[in-house]
Amino acid sequence: MVLIQINGKMVKAHEGEMVLSVLRREGIEVPALCDHQALEPGGSCRLCMVEITKADWDGWTKNVTSCLYPVEEGLIVSTHSEGVLEIRRNILDMLLARCPNSDVIQKLAEEHGVMKTSFDTLPDSDNCIMCYACTRVCEVLGKSAISAVMRGHKKVIASPFGDAPPDCIGCLSCAHICPTNVILWKDENGKRTIWNKSFDLITCKKCGKETISREFADYLLEQRDIPADYFETCDDCKRMELAFKMGGLVDGAEEVAI
């Protein structure tokens, strides 16, 4: 346990924990677009910047991204000082120029008092803020089917050579984790399309409802010890099955304990 001070209040934190997770626990709102608990912190959106200092730093302060800064005994954090707010406003200003059509960015910017970007907006922007959440989630999954390509302002998230990514299993994790909902997919007629790749969806053998992609199920079976037939029925039918199975048992016994 270490003691740190956040906005004047003493707070307990776990050793090795990042400042942002303490802020989250304490209910202190700090925007963080590239942060997700399933992922290692990436530090690319820079919105979770806070100002830190220590008693013996002689009034010297430093701006750090709270998602990556580990707590230290005696750390003094301010999350809403004028300097920090200025940085957040300016970053949102830049993001708004890049993603003028993203409602997520618009809303966040407005909350910080940035109603309009000071810069020329990017024509035909795709609203991607390059937070790497999609590539990081794909890496955690063990696939790394997509990655960031090119450099600087030209950097984009893409599949290898822009083709259908050979390693993609159509799990949609990237699309779901995207903070600005940029990654598009479509489920149609038993097929799922994402990253220009088409996948067969598993259809429930009883009712025909579409569930996850066949390749994702295969990957889960390869990774984890789960009976294959679990994936062949949809959740609705599986609940029915359970009811009938338990009903059969009930007719013999009085109660069923779990």
């Binding site: 997700h36 608990q37 399933a38 989630v137 799990c171 949609l172 994790s173 779901h176 984790i177 598993i202 569930t211 996850i212 994702f216 199920a217 889960l220 789960i226 009976p227 679990y230 994936f231 029925t233 949809c234 959740d235 609705d236 039918c237 599986k238 609940r239 029915m240 099955e241 359970l242």
Partner: peptide
């Protein structure tokens, strides 16, 4: 833990009793 969930629905597909939804 909803903060760690990426909504891939693997659990929904895997639960033999349809109780993750």
């Amino acid at each position: 833990n909803i903060d760690r969930c990426v909504k891939c629905e693997a659990c929904v597909a895997a639960c033999p009793f349809g109780c993750a939804l």
